[in-house]
Design a protein around this nucleic acid. Structure first.
Length: 825
RNA sequence: GCCCGGGUGGUGGAAUGGGAAGACACGAUGGACUCAAAAUCCAUUGCUCCUCGGAGCGUGCGGGUUCGAGUCCCGCCCCGGGCACCA
């Protein structure tokens, strides 16, 4: 006879009080430094580095942050309780434009507004109960951090991976300043709305293109979502083809072009140069087209990149009055300058094949140039860009498949010295100069005698000077700090001037995950042993909006640092999880739209555990979700039910172990508990299906309530404690509190539970009985029943008999443990 | 134009080595408790018929494969995101 739980009512009057519970547990974790992890070598546990992308501290955290860190923290807790030594640090990507724009508007120093925001983030992370090792915290704007950002820059400079060159940059004519790419929205300045122009300026670049092939190839070695890899592959944009030389004999200049279609060389009927091509004016000089060419080039260079880049724009260009020789047949091809040719890709010159390229076709039609078919196939219409046999080319190639001919033509050109196989990438070198105040100073000086001189190690960091005016005026605001700019050359001690540009903030975030490994190191950016201990990041978590830039730059940094012998990390992020956006009313949240959700409001009202569980329960974490307040109550009710269950069970009976040989409802509840263990464990391993994991714990708690009056106290205690244990990664305060009440133990110190396989299987199964694929009845069957027995059970089921009704059974399909389908006529 | 996602009840979403569509939750309706309310608990809840036993229809649309399709194949439509004159 099971002992009834008496006096349940009195205890159930106790209220779930998240404010009290959460503050209490946060104090414990804070005082004990529970989540601090050391670099000690005597710890034998396997390591796990769990990292969410560091926040950009602007204003208060929003629900997107709540989601990222709820996901990351669940993974961190899960790994800890599975025996891993978990590194889970936090920092701030603190340099950047919003703080600077705020300073321009209000005069408040970016350092002050950033500090305020960082404090808001710290407060929220503590109130959310995120399990962070605070001893490794830093902001990328602190000299103790950016000192090493500068050090890395100088290492790259030393290795030739950082260089200065003149380049076209985005220029806002209204603000008289260069803009970061991120500041250009639909071809306009995000601040003033002016159309952005191109300007030629000398800037610092990092040679990421040297790593194009490795960045592409090594994608195969990492566990990232397929679409992120695809985006990176497209961004790198590897194209195989050939470089072919066209000679302008009049002027004695060779013009190599890159083409992916050397098979169509015999179809080339004209030749194009980009407006930025340095030879354009030289070629036109002295011809009747000289003035027209100059006007065209000037127009093209000042036109906004958005207008110029419009695919639907009619093709324009101007003849140069010169010809080049087609190396395969000696034909003279007229030269043009045309703005659809890009200087940054290939050689800035292209051969035009109007029969087999849509753009060249459009140009040929506009200028009435010959169009020749050299590849057969298609529906007879030109341009035709597909495969087929070569025609109108040369006797030795005509009739061969264009693929085959492509190989042979390139080999032939190679022998003749007129071309060779070649690979091109869409990826460009990374422009890191910013004419901005709130960023990491570029640590070089310019000396009239010595040129570009790196600031010596012992003079790092080059600290940001104080300025009065943050607004860019066509030069970096740092230029106004005259005393700071004027310096002595470290090499010759002569007069020198400091670089006044700062670095793109993506530089700061390209190595922060390395610094966490050894954040306190004052002698070096890191001890290599610390990187060996922690890298790579085992699970990286962040928004898909960083799929290209940040993730590509960070990969590049690791490869470059490895080549320099400074780190041994080919890939920084072994596994990546990209979480979806949180929208409201179907739109991205923004202050201007007034559709933001303040997560602090949710946690103040319902508690952090509710806020965290809800953001995970609302839908699969990799998908975009639309926020609604509706469901919050339900999650809060669930946590309250779990907590009250814990209070009741803890207060009503002596601790007791579950029955050794349970039966009836005890067995049902015990099975449910083990089912939940299994379900949550599977949902968290690789799948990150937190929504269904939480739903499984809800089912367990529902069953506890449903069955509690009829089971042994030990069974109920076990089931409730299991619920607390399983919910802990998502609702750590509630989980810890209930677990301690029921077991006296700290849940984060006990291993993740194992499901008993024997309890996952039942001796009795529901057998689905179908007739012609339609479910007609359900009967109980023994799990060990034979196929024949199952078929017989189905045939005898009353509703099945009604549907078979004397007709012939043609076939019996038996799926053991599941169903029987009778096919009748 | 190209490349990714995604279309399932009133709502968010479950279920894919093909095998009970709608777990869990919200909302709604009814009930219990209460002087009342809140909180809590219980029940019902895909749609349409119904003689209250049940029957038919249902996963964006149209076909197909199969004993059986949300799941696989072919052809479309719609929504979201990314890239876009890259030769």
């Amino acid at each position: 006879m099971p002992r009834r739980l008496a006096s349940l009512l009195a205890v159930s009057e106790r209220r779930y009080d998240p404010a009290e519970i959460e503050a209490r547990w946060q104090r414990v974790w804070d005082e004990e430094g529970t989540w601090v992890v050391s670099n000690r070598t005597d710890d034998q546990r396997p390591k796990a580095y769990v990292l969410e992308m560091l926040p950009y501290p602007s204003g208060e955290p929003h629900v997107g942050h709540l989601k990222t860190y709820s996901v990351g923290d669940a993974i961190a807790h899960f790994r800890r309780r599975n025996g891993f030594r978990v590194l889970h640090p936090m920092g701030y990507d603190a340099f950047g434009l919003p703080a600077e724009n705020h300073a321009i508007k209000t005069g408040e120093h970016p350092r002050d507004s950033t500090r305020n925001s960082i404090e808001a983030f710290q407060r929220q992370f503590r109130e959310w109960g995120i399990s962070i090792d605070w001893t490794r915290e830093f902001g990328t704007h602190e000299p103790r951090y950016y000192r090493w950002t500068q050090w890395i820059f100088l290492k790259l400079l030393e290795a030739g991976l950082a260089y200065r060159r003149e380049a076209a940059v985005k220029w806002c004519p209204n603000d008289a300043t260069v803009l970061a790419n991120e500041q250009v929205v639909d071809g306009r300045c995000e601040r003033c709305g002016a159309e952005v122009e191109a300007r030629q300026l000398e800037q610092w670049f990092l040679r990421i293109t040297d790593y194009a092939d490795r960045l592409l190839r090594d994608l195969d070695t990492i566990d990232w979502p397929g679409h992120v890899k695809t985006m990176q592959r497209n961004w790198i944009g590897r194209s195989e083809g050939a470089e072919v030389v066209f000679a302008c004999e009049e002027l004695g200049i060779d013009y190599p072009v890159f083409t992916t279609r050397p098979d169509t060389l015999f179809g080339a009927t004209f030749f194009l140069l980009a407006p930025e091509h340095p030879d354009v004016l030289k070629l036109a000089a002295g011809t009747e087209h000289e003035d027209e060419v100059r006007a065209y080039v000037n127009h093209a260079l000042t036109e906004s990149s958005e207008l110029r880049g419009d695919v639907d724009k009619p093709k324009t260009g101007v003849p140069l009055g010169r010809t080049v020789t087609n190396p395969v047949n000696g034909e003279q091809l007229p030269m043009f300058v045309a703005d659809y040719v890009l200087m940054e890709y290939g050689t800035g010159a292209v051969m035009a094949v109007p029969g087999h390229d849509e753009r060249d076709h459009a140009f040929a039609r506009a200028f009435d140039l010959p169009i020749r078919r050299v590849v057969g196939g298609g529906d007879g219409e030109l341009p035709y860009t597909g495969d087929g046999p070569l025609v109108n080319s040369a006797p030795q190639f005509d009739g061969k498949s264009n693929r085959q001919a492509l190989e042979e033509i390139v080999a032939w050109l190679d022998r003749e010295g007129r071309g060779h196989p070649s690979v091109n990438y869409r990826l460009r070198d990374w422009l890191v100069s910013r004419q901005r105040y709130w960023g990491c100073p570029i640590p070089v000086v310019y000396c009239e005698r010595c040129g570009i001189v790196p600031v010596p190690d012992d003079q790092l960091p080059v600290e940001l000077p104080e300025v009065d005016d943050y607004a860019p005026r066509g030069r970096s605001p740092l230029a106004a700090a005259e005393d700071w700019v004027r310096t002595r050359c470290p090499r010759c001690d002569g007069e020198a001037r400091r670089e006044t540009d700062t670095m793109d903030t993506f530089v700061d975030s390209s190595w922060y995950f390395l610094r966490y490994c050894d954040a306190g190191n004052e002698e070096a950016a890191w001890d290599p042993a610390a990187l060996r201990l922690w890298m790579a990041v085992d699970q990286y978590i962040g928004g898909v909006e960083h799929a290209i830039l940040h993730l590509m730059y960070a990969r590049f940094f690791c490869k470059a640092l490895s080549d320099l012998g400074l780190a041994d990390v080919q890939e920084p992020f072994a596994a990546l999880f990209t979480q979806g956006m949180v929208t409201r009313g179907g739109a991205k949240m923004s202050k201007s739209k007034g559709n933001t959700v303040d997560p602090a409001e949710i946690s103040d009202r319902y508690g952090a555990d509710t806020a965290r569980c809800y953001i995970l329960f609302i839908g699969p974490p990799d998908q975009d979700v639309d926020w609604s307040d509706e469901g919050v109550e339900g999650v809060h009710r669930f946590l309250a039910r779990l907590w009250r269950l814990g209070a009741e069970v803890a207060g009503a009976a002596e601790p007791a172990d579950p029955e050794v040989d349970p039966e009836g409802d005890d067995l049902v509840l015990l099975r449910k508990a083990h089912w939940a263990i299994d379900k949550v464990t599977r949902d968290m391993t690789g799948r990150f299906a937190f929504n269904t994991a939480i739903a499984a714990v809800m089912e367990l708690v529902n069953d506890c309530y449903r069955l509690r009056a009829g089971v042994e106290p030990g069974t109920l205690r076990f089931a409730a404690a299991t619920g607390a244990s399983l919910i802990f990664p998502f609702a750590p305060h509630c989980g810890a509190d209930v677990y301690e009440r029921l077991t006296g133990e700290r849940v984060w110190e006990v291993p993740w539970p194992d499901a008993d396989p024997a309890l996952l299987e039942s001796e009795v199964v529901q057998l689905v009985c179908q007739v012609n694929g339609k479910v007609r009845d359900r009967v109980e069957a023994s799990a060990s029943a034979s196929r024949e027995e199952l078929a017989a059970l189905c045939r005898e089921a009353p509703k099945v008999r009604a549907h078979v009704d004397g007709r012939d059974v043609l076939k019996e399909v038996v799926v053991p443990g599941k169903l029987v389908n009778l096919v009748v006529r």
